[in-house]
Amino acid sequence: MLSAIAVIFALISVSNGIKEGYLPSYINPCDLAKPSTEFVDCVKEQIEATLPHFTKGIEELGVPSLDPVALDDIHIDGNGLKLTFTHAAMHGLSDSKLSQLKLDIGKDVETFSLSFKGNMSVSAKYVVDGRILILPIQGKGDAKVNCHNIEVQIDSKLTHVKDAKGIHFKLVTPSYKYNIQSTKFEFQNLFNGNKQLSDATHQFANENWKQLMDDLSPPVIKQIVKTCVKAINKFFSNVTIPQIVKGYNN
């Protein structure tokens, strides 16, 4: 889902020890001197080309893998339900697709708006006790949350950072919103393995998935955005603006 933001400006991939100006074979830098529509179309193409590579991580630049994304522990405690996810990870970011892109680069205020959509899943260890609406739920074990058609929109400003290597982009004050079409839960060992109770609970939880996701989604999406932004800024810190965008005048 969200990994597309991590490559919005990853128009090239460089690594320590590679000569300056090196471009991998799958990248063609975009020219800011072109009409804005052509430039944006070029960036879209580079996102699609770069995404599978970037999400695997760039070890030489200290950019971590973005698929899966390790998540902090998640705790839900309210409305009669106590649910904790530990050892959690989000999978599927590398398969997300760009649905919208807007860029303002080379202006006084530089911004971008990016929307992407995909199917993703969270795997974790869980402990749950309480009720989902009127239905009791209790258990602990392995869990998987399959999310269908998550669409995320990210808006951010760009600032510039100067160091001995030159001028770099940096993402600042990112904001986001999202929508999920549907979700399916898989909890192993509910009610100590009682299949009848487990099946009934799964059916009810999956029919009322939105109540659970209203509590679960915000911390998950927030962590994903934070991880992606951190990876982008790590990349930017090792790549100057002229390397990323042709015809850019600071």
Rank of each mutant, 00 (worst) to 15 (best):
37 T>V: 14
173 T>Y: 04
145 V>C: 06
115 S>Q: 11
188 Q>M: 07
36 S>E: 13
93 L>G: 11
102 K>Y: 15
176 Y>F: 07
98 L>Q: 04
11 L>R: 07
28 N>E: 15
44 K>Q: 12
2 L>I: 12
155 D>S: 09
103 L>C: 01
177 K>A: 06
155 D>E: 05
40 V>N: 05
171 L>I: 12
220 V>Q: 02
6 A>E: 09
33 A>W: 10
169 F>H: 09
76 I>Y: 00
41 D>R: 02
20 E>W: 10
37 T>M: 13
212 L>I: 03
135 L>G: 00
41 D>P: 06
219 P>Q: 01
1 M>Y: 09
82 K>C: 04
141 G>C: 12
17 G>Y: 05
112 F>G: 08
239 V>H: 08
165 K>W: 06
193 G>E: 04
40 V>H: 05
45 E>Q: 08
154 I>A: 09
131 R>E: 10
189 N>D: 12
243 Q>Y: 10
103 L>G: 02
26 Y>C: 10
99 S>L: 13
24 P>C: 09
154 I>D: 08
57 G>D: 08
232 I>N: 10
157 K>T: 13
232 I>A: 15
208 N>H: 02
235 F>E: 10
100 Q>T: 10
32 L>I: 09
15 S>V: 12
198 S>K: 03
121 S>K: 12
216 L>S: 01
116 F>M: 10
121 S>H: 12
177 K>W: 10
178 Y>M: 06
242 P>G: 06
105 I>G: 02
95 D>N: 13
22 Y>I: 10
143 A>P: 07
114 L>I: 15
109 V>S: 13
232 I>C: 13
211 Q>I: 13
192 N>T: 03
240 T>D: 02
96 S>D: 08
199 D>C: 01
243 Q>S: 15
184 K>V: 08
104 D>C: 09
37 T>A: 15
200 A>L: 05
187 F>M: 01
217 S>F: 07
115 S>K: 11
194 N>I: 04
31 D>R: 02
173 T>C: 07
164 A>F: 11
31 D>P: 04
118 G>L: 03
137 I>F: 03
178 Y>V: 02
168 H>D: 00
36 S>P: 05
9 F>R: 07
238 N>F: 15
203 Q>N: 13
32 L>A: 05
23 L>G: 11
68 P>L: 08
124 A>M: 12
47 I>Y: 00
29 P>F: 06
59 E>G: 11
192 N>P: 06
49 A>Y: 09
153 Q>C: 13
210 K>D: 13
73 D>S: 13
9 F>I: 06
53 H>G: 10
48 E>T: 14
48 E>V: 15
205 A>K: 00
117 K>C: 14
31 D>Y: 01
145 V>K: 05
205 A>Y: 00
81 L>T: 00
210 K>E: 15
245 V>E: 01
7 V>W: 03
141 G>I: 15
70 A>Q: 15
75 H>S: 09
161 V>D: 04
137 I>K: 00
47 I>N: 01
